[in-house]
Design a protein around this nucleic acid. Sequence first.
DNA 1: CAGATAACGCAAGCTAAGTAGCGATAAGAT
DNA 2: ATCTTATCGCTACTTAGCTTGCGTTATCTG
Lengths: 202, 202
Amino acid sequence: MATMEFQAARQPVRRTGGRSARVRAAVIDATLAALLTRGLDDLSITEIAQQAGVHPTTIYRRWGGRSNLALDAVLSGTEAEIPPPDTGSLRGDLLAVIRGIFPFLRTPLGELLVRLALRRDLPEYEAARGGYWAQRFRAGAALFERARARGELRADVDPVLALETLVGPMYVRMLMTGEPLDDALLVRCVDLVLDGIATRPR
Amino acid sequence: MATMEFQAARQPVRRTGGRSARVRAAVIDATLAALLTRGLDDLSITEIAQQAGVHPTTIYRRWGGRSNLALDAVLSGTEAEIPPPDTGSLRGDLLAVIRGIFPFLRTPLGELLVRLALRRDLPEYEAARGGYWAQRFRAGAALFERARARGELRADVDPVLALETLVGPMYVRMLMTGEPLDDALLVRCVDLVLDGIATRPR
DNA sequence: CAGATAACGCAAGCTAAGTAGCGATAAGAT
DNA sequence: ATCTTATCGCTACTTAGCTTGCGTTATCTG
């Protein structure tokens, strides 16, 4: 044994910017387009491959299935962070929060993200789902701390439950009843969460 | 022409109780079982047919696809009506409402119903969805009328929005965050909707 | 009991999803 | 500039979903 080529189990060399990157970009773009027009379940790998100018086998090899492909495409298109607001009042902050979420949810990409998050038959999403929503809801914690310091918040209020109650009707209408949903309703949601529906505190 | 058999464009003769009925019952049962174990998307018509002792072709002919089959099965298994409660107080009524919904949602059939309602790629469901949820939410109207007569309800409260706000967190937790959900949380949901989170009414 | 026929079973075939093997190409390293 | 090899394209194949056509059975009507 003259030359002992010690070759550690190295991972494949990245080819950033080369053909691989071009192929990936083309496929992701085509997948997003297909997702927005045809939905998740009617996704045709062959059609995406044609649209991207790529052979279907390539997609099957790189992504392995439509779940991974869709997840990769959506997460690639959703990098925006929503900064927590600080308007000086609890009502203003809550209004800013819900007004920050609402327009995004009306976006085709936003609705797609929500629908992906609801799927339970895609094991690839189970890991991403919990972390995504937890982060999104925890971001509002500071908001409630400030309100409590200002004396605007009842003592026994759970911030997470309050946020869930705030945005709950929005999701219920979007996903189930399909009833109309506009900015005026968002204001009513905020005021309902703030004041409740009872005539006087018990 | 001796006998003029006037034969209007009659619809196929119903064969209630015969082989057709038996086949239908067997297929519906097998479909429900398959839905509860394998989910909607991994549904195998061939497997259901074997389970029901029926040829796959029969299912394709009668139902035409898995969407119709699943919808028929679920609606056949969900005939229970939830009577609107009347406990004498707004808080008691709201608690009864949410306590009536919650256990059903934890049922496999309940969760299945919710997930079916969330699907937008099944045109068969679009018609059923709106009516189902509208009825479910309108059933609570009387509840609020009584509360208003007792002077327990603020004047400007929208009953539908109030109900959506009440059950919103429950759905958010079940569908998105996956956070724990028990009876104690239901009580907190009711109290939050009743009293709000602000220290004093504006 | 005796037609008429709706509904079912069966076999064959079509389409699309997904996989495997193999040669070709181009990105990256020496 | 040249070599190595990760990645891609191509063909062929397997599998499952679904449809079609035809003969058979069981139900309903008279």
